[in-house]
Design a protein around this nucleic acid. Structure first.
Lengths: 125, 125
DNA sequence: CTAGGACTTGGAGTGGACTCCAATGCAAAC
DNA sequence: GTTTGCATTGGAGTCCACTCCAAGTCCTAG
């Protein structure tokens, strides 16, 4: 049904479908250092691993919650630099989570404002 | 303390401070048709009214909840076109509110994922 | 009266995050 | 073995929503 890995690992197209990023975005992320150690076939095509897919899941989460690419790069660097950076990673994620909390609270308040507007308009009918 | 309206109404600077938009953004919004009927002094300076400030509050809410400028323009047009468009405005706001709801739900889920990551890292310590 | 800050314009520039392109090579299906 | 379509590259282009600029005018405090 779905294509089988031809050597081993996922082609960029398969990886795009599974990760939710476009192929272009995956190449871009590799270029800026968000993705590492991508295998290549003898002829130069990328082959992504399950570990990559998991990492991409994390990236997707961070990106979709509004973390700038540059900060994700910092996180990626920490991960690359090994266990000693765990406290820094915790710190970074906690700060980000707080930003997400604030964003949610803001959206929540503003949704109420919108609901108020809707109710007002409905009162006019 | 704060500047008094020199004729009547707020200068663009005052309006910027009160609305949370920059002066440049206010001029840009006027250009694209999001703001209407701004008075001018004899020498051409803008003077915003309280009604403008209220409208800007609505714009801020829509913008901060992710509505694209183009869709805000559509809403502005509906408002300009008078009472007959109230049902359409309700529809537009309801659709937008639903988008906000989905955004909140998504952020919520992803915050949990982040919390999971944090807990995992803390388990390593 | 003068200094210094606020305001005007049209248009150009910015930033972030992709997204597309052309020319070319590779691979799976029939 | 050829077609169909997926993959490669570097670099250019796009999109959105501002944001900045230069050159000039205006306004108010002292």
């Amino acid at each position: 049904m779905t294509s089988t890995p031809m050597q081993t690992g996922y082609t960029i197209g398969e990886c795009a479908r599974r990760s939710g990023f476009s192929m272009d975005t995956l190449r871009y992320y590799e270029r800026v250092g968000l993705i590492d150690d991508v295998d290549r076939t003898a002829t130069g095509q990328r082959r992504f691993s399950d570990a990559h897919l998991e990492w991409l899941g994390t990236l997707k989460c961070l990106r979709d919650t509004g973390m700038p690419v540059e900060q994700m790069c910092r996180f990626a660097r920490l991960v690359r630099d090994g266990d000693a950076t765990v406290p820094e990673r915790i710190e970074l994620l906690q700060v980000h989570r707080e930003a997400v909390n604030e964003r949610i609270a803001d959206l929540d308040a503003k949704r109420d404002y919108i609901s108020g507007k809707i109710a007002y308009y409905q009162g006019l009918q």
